[in-house]
Amino acid sequence: MDAQKADMFIMTHAKFFEPHLIPAIREKLLQTDESKWMSIQSLTYREPVLMLIISILGGHFGIDRFIIGDMGLGVAKLLTCGGLGIWTIVDWFLIMERTKEVNFEKLRMLLG
């Protein structure tokens, strides 16, 4: 893939990933075949700020964990009343980082 496209992707999608992973993503994009460009562009990523809002509003029932795909943790959170309220608050600080991690895993799976 040419550098212009990789840079454009980084500029428009930087907020979905951890800042320290950006150079690695750019490198990976440069090594990727041009044919995957459409699939990379059409991937949907979870918005970290939106996940934080969901965590504040529905974190008590584990909805935030269900949405990002952590089903095991979601059920555990639901069963324990949001970890007796403690986990709900802990997740307000963790969920944005976890969302970015999940987005990166999704992209990595596509890039191979």
Binding site: H60, F61, L78, L79, T80, C81, G82, L84, G85, I86, T88
Partner: peptide, 14 residues
């Protein structure tokens, strides 16, 4: 500790 119970007065699933 149940935020849902405190806000609505209803019991939550757990």
């Amino acid at each position: 500790t149940c935020i849902f119970n405190r806000l609505t007065g209803l019991p939550c699933p757990s």
